[in-house]
Design a protein around this nucleic acid. Structure first.
Length: 480
RNA sequence: CGCGGGGUAGAGGAGAGGUACCUCGGGAGGCUCAUAACCUCCAGACCCCGGUUCGAUUCCGGGCCCCGCAACCA
């Protein structure tokens, strides 16, 4: 018997200086699907999502936009939170790094790491790129300019606080040697390689005179906390750490199983820096971090100048909430880069949703509605067999959904072979009714399996079975 | 010699030491419960050169070509 476990899930904090894009949507949908799956399996789940609202880029954009900084971040926080409805996300917490509860957590983890002797002050001189909010080495530059932002960095000297990341090399090697710490495995090996090459201490503050949009460093009002200690700490501030260490924090972080979702470019931040911070603060490491790939379009990165950007809200408008979730889960590789174009997505939508599950539901429920005097009684059963369970445990959303569509095809075949629609008109009507009832039961299992992936569709199918009524079209045909 | 991923039917993708699979597209047939949907059958592919092996598309070495780390991203 499976015991009930507490499970913690979180996505990475998007930096809110632009509207949500496909990468955010992908990460949210993947995490949400796992969260829903675990809940169905009976675990107790805490699922966090949030936004990173500090830093120079945001303050600059806000200042030049005519809005106050608070208005600016409020606007974007709202926009990200709108994804909840658009993608039917089931998160339990939406952290904003500008919130009081978060600020308290940041200052507290700083104090703990400081008293552990891991924070010190040092003069730092270097070439600073405003766009990156980071110091650059000569080798980073192309023609003396930052390749990312096409601007010449300024030479700056400032005194910053540093975190002794170098103290944690041995610890991180041990942590990253655990098979489960990073999914997929090749990212774990990347991280391990990086750590073995040696770690430099990390600049973790900025002088307020130059960058004031952040959380003040404890005991030093001339500095604000730089992104690492600020943003990463959200993973525990959302659990009310440190104010209520014996509540959700104890239950979900210390005693629960923790799982983070992040993009492939986040390995150093999530699996290295954040884990060293946690160790310094004597908090349990993240049990597992899953890294997804990126989405390209037409063989190229999505880029405004190329004009191939696909906006998640446009997807939802065209394919619906569940259609969008379906495309992200079955047709995007969980960990490698994938390529999406409108043409391909149209194909997948029509073939698998309109002609697949949509049509199957219609044909079965039509027969049920016309021939059964009452709804089919269904027992409760665990619909996730070994194959799907294994796929879900390894974040293989494609295999899991393939398995479901295999089942859809099998049921379509069964209808063709057994021909209950024909048999009801003969003297074998009783036999036909039995077959129809079987078909409804199979449809119910399919609906159950779809629940984590396409929650609304799952409910619509179950409802139509409960009412013994053919539903409205689950997926309408595309116009063009 | 910086590191890494990859080249599979017309297109896009999976896979595996021995019958190569899926979606779309093409051809033929079936069915009428269903959203011009569904089912069956057919045609069509593993980049090149070596090696290991009874057997390689899969493993190893070399070559050619794409791509990522490293153009406003997760």
């Amino acid at each position: 018997m499976r015991t009930k476990k507490s499970r913690y899930l979180t996505t990475t904090l998007p930096y809110v200086n632009a509207s949500p894009h496909m990468g955010h949507a992908l990460e949210f949908v993947q995490a949400d699907t796992v969260a829903r799956y675990l809940r169905i399996k009976g675990d107790e789940v805490f699922f966090n999502v949030g936004v990173d609202e500090h830093g120079q880029k945001i303050s600059q954009k806000a200042d030049s936009s005519g809005m106050s900084r608070q208005e600016y971040i409020d606007k974007y926080a709202k926009e990200f939170n709108k994804l909840k409805e658009a993608l039917d996300l089931s998160y339990d917490s939406f952290v904003r790094t500008s919130s009081d509860k978060h600020k308290i957590a940041v200052r507290e983890i700083w104090r703990i790491c400081d008293s552990a002797g891991d924070i010190y002050k040092k003069k730092y001189k270097g070439l600073y790129c405003v766009g990156c909010e980071a110091f650059k080495t000569e080798s980073d530059l192309v023609d003396g300019k930052c390749p990312d932002h096409q601007i010449e960095p300024e030479e700056l000297e400032e005194e910053n606080y540093f975190f002794r990341l170098s103290n944690y090399q041995d610890y991180l090697i041990e942590y990253l040697s655990k098979e489960d710490s990073v999914i997929p495995n090749f990212r774990r090996l990347e991280a391990l390689d990086f750590v073995k090459k040696g770690l430099e201490d990390l600049s973790i503050s900025r002088e307020k005179s130059r960058m004031d949009w952040g959380i003040e460093v404890p005991g030093d009002d001339k500095h604000v906390v730089y992104v690492w200690f600020d943003a990463l700490t959200n993973y525990i501030s959302c659990l009310d750490w440190p104010e209520d260490k014996n509540g959700n924090f104890l239950k979900f972080w210390e005693q629960g199983q923790t799982l983070q979702f992040a993009g492939k470019d986040q390995v150093r931040f999530q699996s290295i820096i954040w884990q060293a911070m946690l160790k310094s603060a004597q908090i349990k490491a993240t049990d597992k971090i899953f890294y997804h790939g990126f989405i390209n379009s037409g063989g190229q990165k999505m880029s405004k100048s190329i004009g191939n950007v696909i906006d998640p809200y446009d997807l939802v408008e065209r394919y619906g909430t569940d259609g969008t979730r379906y495309l992200m889960l079955r047709h995007v590789h969980p960990t490698d880069d994938s390529d999406l174009t409108w043409d391909k997505m149209d194909e997948w939508y029509t073939a698998n949703l309109v002609n697949g599950i949509g049509n199957l539901t219609a044909r079965i429920m039509k027969m049920a509605e016309s021939n059964l005097s009452q709804p089919v009684e269904l027992g409760v059963s665990d619909v996730f067999d070994m194959e799907i369970s294994t796929a879900m445990d390894t974040f293989d959303f494609q295999s899991a959904t393939d398995k479901i569509w295999k089942k859809i095809q099998t049921v379509d075949e069964k209808i063709t072979i057994t021909e209950p629609f024909k048999m009801v008109k003969t003297d074998r009507r009783g036999e036909a009714i039995k077959i129809i009832e079987e078909l409804v039961a199979e449809l119910s299992i399919i609906a159950g399996m779809l629940a984590p992936f396409m929650p609304q569709t799952s409910v619509l199918i179950q409802d139509s079975i409960a009412e013994n009524k053919m539903p409205e079209k689950l997926f309408t045909r595309l116009d063009s």
